[in-house]
């Protein structure tokens, strides 16, 4: 009986190992295409977590199901099981293994974080740079994305763009060309530097295809950097709840070749500023005529942004 249990469980453990590896591979297909250098780093890390997580989840579930199948009391068996209060060795092992695991996962996460050099508040930004090469050498996996970040960080000029979030619209301003837009156009393979502003409440700058997110806080300017590496159109979503029309507060991000990007900037600069279509304003002015149930008084949306460039309405996009 005991030998059979050990053999069965060892066999299941090996199967489980392969299954976990398979799940780790699958995890790349659960997320949007990798459109920034940072995306690849996050996906590699996520894949490790998925593999280990699968192993742990099924590693607990399989013994439970096994017990339910083979350790059931007979219908008229009212006796007790063996009086086992514990096992010090086992308890030490299953305390030590999780400690090692979480420390390992923390270290892996820290390395990824370091390579991404995520900029939140300004003070710590430059501390990351000298460490980059060193960490890259020690890194066990593909360091192309990190190289891309490094190259982009070193290749001047960095694209400076002002981002303003408000209830409920996004406005992007290119200070060098004095162009404003409700669609964020970016050159591919360049380090992008955004200055995030909010006019009213908290908002969140979230681009799923870039795996990046940053809350935007009124009265503060937040620096934010990343490197797009894939040409295409990606949704930008407000990720931090900002009131009535929060769900409609989206914009497109268009990553273009540098030539197309310059062309777009030039075209946009030639256009006179005009009011852009704005979903929140559209719905607010339509009022309760939408036919939906109920409706309470809402904060009035800011007036539609006046910009050089805005895409054709309505803004409703998906990657690619």
């Amino acid at each position: 009986m005991k030998l059979r249990a050990i053999l069965t469980l060892s066999f299941l453990a090996v199967l489980l190992g392969f299954f976990s590896l398979w799940m780790a591979q699958q995890s790349y297909s659960w997320v949007p295409p990798e459109a920034a250098a940072e995306s690849k780093l996050v996906d590699d890390l996520f894949s490790i977590f998925v593999g280990l997580g699968t192993f742990i989840l099924l590693g607990v579930t399989i013994p439970i199901v096994y017990s339910l199948m083979f350790h059931r009391a007979g219908k008229y068996d009212f006796s007790d099981g063996p009086h086992i209060e514990g096992n010090t060795l086992l308890e030490v092992i299953w305390t030590a293994v999780p400690i090692v695991l979480v420390l390992g996962l923390s270290t892996a996460s820290y390395r990824t974080y370091d390579k991404m050099s995520i900029q939140g508040p300004m003070e710590l930004v430059h501390l990351h740079l000298p460490q980059l090469v060193e960490v890259a050498n020690a890194a066990p996996f593909d360091n192309t994305p990190q190289k891309e970040i490094e190259t982009a960080q070193e290749s001047a000029p960095i694209e400076d763009i002002d981002v303003t979030a408000k209830q409920w619209s996004w406005v992007f301003r290119y200070p060098n060309q004095n162009v404003t837009s409700t669609e964020l156009h970016l050159p591919v393979d360049r380090r992008i530097h955004l200055a995030l502003h909010s006019d009213d409440v908290l908002h969140g700058f979230y681009v799923p295809a870039f795996r990046l997110k940053q809350d935007i806080i009124p009265n503060r300017v937040i620096d934010f950097e990343f490197t797009p590496v894939r040409i295409g159109t990606y949704p930008l979503r407000d990720s931090l709840y900002s009131g009535t029309y929060f769900a409609a507060n989206q914009a497109n991000i268009v990553v273009q070749s540098p030539a197309d990007y310059q062309q777009w900037l030039a075209d946009a600069a030639a256009q006179p500023p005009s009011p852009a279509y704005n979903q929140a304003n559209f719905e607010y002015s339509r009022g309760t005529k939408s036919g939906n149930i109920g409706g309470w008084k809402s904060v009035a949306p800011a007036s539609p942004p006046i910009v050089n460039y805005s895409p054709q309405p309505p803004v409703n996009s998906s990657p690619d």
């Binding site: 579930t61 996460s109 795996r211 990046l212 997110k213």
Partner: peptide, 21 residues
């Protein structure tokens, strides 16, 4: 256990930055 696995993912800063909110 499933919630714990996703919880550890959420504790990891780079993953959380993607899936937070």
């Amino acid at each position: 256990v499933f919630a714990g696995v996703t919880g550890i993912m959420l504790a990891s800063v780079p993953i959380d930055i993607h899936v937070n909110n």
